[in-house]
Computed example of a mutant assay.
Amino acid sequence: MSSDTTRTRVIIVPASKPALPTHIKLRHDPGRGRWHVLAPERVFEPDPIAIEILKRCDGVTSVEQIATDLAKDYNAPLQEILNDTISMLQELSDKGVVKAA
């Protein structure tokens, strides 16, 4: 692989502001009552928690704020939510499904 095509791994941290790249879409299928992440030649069916995180990935809201909102909404421990959110977003970032600034 040439150095021109090598992708640098983005590390997701609390201050990261994740977003879906323009070629990735989060769509609800009302007929099936399910959410899907549509990517070129791939379709993901995220679990309900992942959906709540992905809905908040607007490129403006930080991972820390997303976790804070979820901890409040679900009355759950902030640190646990933050760790799980970072872990999930890191995995999706590594697959190119999420970008972060």
Rank of each mutant, 00 (worst) to 15 (best):
L92P: 12
P18A: 08
V10R: 06
V10N: 15
T61C: 03
E45M: 05
D58K: 02
P77E: 11
A100K: 04
W35H: 13
V98D: 09
L26K: 01
Y74A: 11
I49V: 11
I51W: 01
L92T: 09
V98M: 00
V98G: 10
E41D: 15
I66F: 10
K95V: 01
A19L: 14
L92E: 10
I53P: 07
L26I: 02
R9V: 00
I49H: 06
D84N: 05
D94P: 09
I86N: 04
S62A: 08
I51F: 05
R27H: 13
I86D: 09
P30K: 02
C57I: 01
H28N: 05
G59D: 11
V37D: 05
D73R: 04
L20K: 07
F44N: 13
S87K: 05
R42C: 07
A15R: 06
P21T: 11
S3Y: 09
I51G: 03
R42T: 06
L26G: 14
V60D: 09
R34N: 06
S87I: 00
V37F: 11
G31E: 14
A101Y: 08
S16G: 05
E80I: 00
A67C: 12
D58M: 03
E80N: 14
R42S: 11
K25F: 06
T8S: 12
I24P: 07
P48F: 07
T6I: 12
K95E: 15
I12E: 15
V98W: 06
I66H: 10
G59Y: 13
E41R: 12
E52W: 01
G33A: 03
I24N: 11
M1E: 13
E45N: 07
H23N: 12
T61V: 01
V37Q: 06
K72I: 11
E80C: 00
K25T: 10
R34A: 07
R56A: 05
E45D: 15
P18K: 01
T22N: 09
N75L: 09
N75Y: 14
R34D: 13
S93N: 14
P77R: 02
P48R: 03
V98Y: 04
G96M: 00
R42E: 15
S3R: 05
T8N: 13
P30G: 14
D4T: 08
R56W: 02
E45W: 11
I53R: 00
L82A: 04
L89Y: 11
T61P: 01
A76F: 14
K95W: 14
S2M: 01
P40I: 06
D58E: 13
S93V: 08
V43R: 02
L92C: 09
L38R: 08
I86M: 08
A76L: 06
